[in-house]
Every structure is written in structure tokens, then in C-alpha cells.
């Protein structure tokens, strides 16, 4: 009798914890409606190729393709940290058009940066005055967007990408 009373708190505790555990593992959140913040169309821009002054890219021409847009700069240390991951993305999702923007950066420095780290981008655009980044609502480097075939933003990440983000959030989009 006495023992049974003493065990009760332990049993109650275990039951409660079990429920919480299931709850967390199921990833439930009682008051959270689904996100409605994505699915907006990308801003209109035109940008010159870093390597070719006569080559310009218009935002309209991105439609019909999945595009990854990455803002980087040679002065941005975290950008270096994520840089090699674009090669991984390039390999895993070959149909993705990877667009890089050199953000508020000296053109020579950008070129040197891409020489040192390699160039995973299908196109490197110049965003010297940061106007394009501004239209995208970028507030810190690095920042990455993914645009679907209809030109809608379906993914956004501020800060360096990680392997986990690529596996968990980017790969599942394709």
C-alpha cells in the first residue's frame, strides 16, 4: 500500500513526459496556421554579367526554370563558409539555374574570390549599388532564394546554408 503511493508520482511523471514526447515528435503546434508568406513573385531586375559587360540578364528570362539566387561578396566571411555547398547543389540538382550576385563589391575582388573558391554559378550578376538586393529585401549577407518556374519565391534563407538545410529544405522542393 505504502509503496504503491510512493510510486504514483513517478508513474504520473512518466505518463506526462510520454505525451509530451509524442507531441514533440509529431511536430505539432496547436495554434500555428500554415505559412502564407511565401509564393510571392520575384522583383523585376536586370543585371550585367561580371565577366562580360555586354551580357545582361533580365528577371523575366528566369521564368520556366527553377533558379537559385545567392547574394555574396568577397568581404563576407560567412559567404566563404557556404561557398563549397553550391557545388554540392549543382551536382545534386543539375536542372537548377544558379545565379550569383556580387553584392556591393569591387569587381576585381569578386573575380579573385571566385578564382580562389571556384565558381559554381551559372551566371554571376553585378549588384554594385545593392539595388537588386534591396528589391529582394536582403538585409545581410549571405542570403539565398529559390524561384520556381512561375517566378515565385518558394524558399528563402538568411545566413550561410548548411548541409542540413540543403538536405531538409532544398532537396525536397525538387
Amino acid at each position: 500500500m505504502n509503496r504503491a503511493v510512493l510510486i504514483t508520482p513517478l508513474m504520473v511523471l512518466t505518463t506526462i513526459c510520454l505525451f509530451f514526447l509524442i507531441f514533440i515528435l509529431l511536430g505539432k503546434n496547436p495554434n500555428d496556421p500554415p505559412s502564407a508568406l511565401l509564393n510571392k513573385s520575384l522583383p523585376i531586375f536586370s543585371s550585367t554579367n561580371l565577366y562580360d559587360n555586354d551580357d545582361t540578364l533580365l528577371s523575366d528570362s528566369l521564368k520556366g526554370n527553377y533558379t537559385l539566387i545567392n547574394f555574396f561578396a568577397s568581404w563576407c566571411t560567412p559567404c566563404r563558409a557556404e561557398h563549397h555547398l553550391f557545388f554540392k547543389i549543382q551536382k545534386e540538382i543539375p536542372e537548377l539555374f544558379i545565379l550569383g550576385f556580387s553584392h556591393k563589391d569591387d569587381l576585381g575582388d569578386s573575380k579573385k574570390y571566385l578564382e580562389e573558391e571556384g565558381n559554381p554559378y551559372s551566371f554571376v550578376g553585378i549588384d554594385r549599388d545593392g539595388k537588386i538586393a534591396f528589391d529582394f529585401g536582403v538585409f545581410g549577407l549571405p542570403e539565398t532564394f529559390i524561384i520556381n518556374k512561375d517566378g515565385e519565391i518558394i524558399f528563402k534563407h538568411t545566413g550561410p546554408l548548411t548541409k542540413k538545410i540543403i538536405d531538409d529544405e532544398i532537396s525536397i522542393l525538387f
Binding site: 511565401l38 522583383p43 534591396f134 529582394f136 529585401g137 538585409f139 532564394f145 519565391i153 528563402k156
Partner: peptide, 17 residues
């Protein structure tokens, strides 16, 4: 700072979360 600039250009609505 960015918000102010956005408002200046009437682009406030263009905030992508």
C-alpha cells in the same frame, strides 16, 4: 534602416519574409 528606404521608395509592400 532598410524599412525606411523601402518606405521612401513606396516599396514597403515588397517584403519577402
Amino acid at each position: 534602416s532598410i524599412k525606411k528606404e523601402l518606405e521612401k521608395n513606396n516599396q514597403w509592400k515588397k517584403n519577402y519574409k
